[in-house]
Design a protein around this nucleic acid. Structure first.
Lengths: 107, 107
DNA sequence: CTATTATATAACATATCTTTTATATAACTG
DNA sequence: CAGTTATATAAAAGATATGTTATATAATAG
C-alpha cells in the first residue's frame, strides 16, 4: 500500500479526523484521545495505529503513557498530490474567467 | 457519510487517483479511462460512481458516451480541512525555527 | 510484592469494498 | 429493423475495515 493510499484511507474515517483535530491542539495520550468518543479504548488504539502507519502521527514513550502528536511532514505528500489536481482546476477557472471576460466585452 | 468521508475515501484508491490524474489532462469517456487498466469496464464504472458520489468528478451525457471531467470545487473542501492541520504544523515548524535560532545564538 | 493504570493484542462478528461474470439499456450504424 | 458500441446494474466471491470483549504487558503506586 502506497503512502498516499494509507494517508487518504486514514483520513477517510471521521473518528480519525477528529483525533487529528484534537492533536492539532497539542499532544495527547491514548486515554485523553479516547475520552470524547463513545468507543472502547482498543478501538481508539487501532485508529492510532492506522494514523501512525499512515505517517500522520508520531508517538513517544513516557512511562506507561504513549503521548501522540501530529507528524510534521504529514500533509506534505498529500498536498503535493492534490497540487496536480489544483493546477488543472485553477487553469479551468482561469479559462472560465476568460470566457466571462469575453462575454462582457461582447456586450 | 460526510462529504469529507466520501472524498478522502475515494482518494484512497490508487486506481481512482490514476483516473483523476488522467482527467487532469482533460475530459475522457469511460472506455478511454478504462483502457490503461487491467480491469474490466464494470469495475471502472464503479470507480467512477465513487468519484462522482464524492463530488470529485462530473459527467455529461453525449449520445451513448458519458464523458467525465474533474469537478471544479472538488478540492476546496479537502483543502479547507487540511488547512487546520497545516496551521498547526506550520506553527510547530516556526517553533522549531525559534529553537534552532536560539541554539545558534548560544554558540 | 500486589494492585492499579495505560496501552496493546487476539479472536471474532459484521459490514463494506473491490472485482468478476453475466446481463440490461440505450444510442448509433448500415 | 439488426447488429454493434458505450455504459450501467446485479449477483456473488473474496478481502479488508471497524468495532466488541477478553486478555496480556509493562510501568507506577502503595
Amino acid at each position: 500500500m502506497s503512502n498516499l493510499d494509507a494517508a487518504f484511507s486514514a483520513l477517510a474515517d471521521p473518528t480519525r479526523r477528529a483525533i487529528l483535530a484534537r492533536l492539532a491542539l497539542g499532544e495527547a495520550t491514548v486515554m485523553e484521545l479516547a475520552e470524547p468518543f463513545e468507543m472502547t479504548q482498543p478501538a481508539i488504539s487501532r485508529h492510532l495505529k492506522v494514523l501512525e502507519g499512515a505517517g500522520l502521527i508520531l508517538r513517544r514513550v513516557e512511562g506507561t503513557k504513549r503521548p501522540c502528536r501530529l507528524a510534521p511532514t504529514a500533509i506534505a505528500e498529500i498536498d503535493q498530490w492534490l497540487g496536480m489536481l489544483r493546477q488543472t482546476l485553477t487553469a479551468n477557472y482561469n479559462r472560465l474567467d476568460d470566457v466571462l471576460a469575453a462575454m462582457k466585452t461582447e456586450e
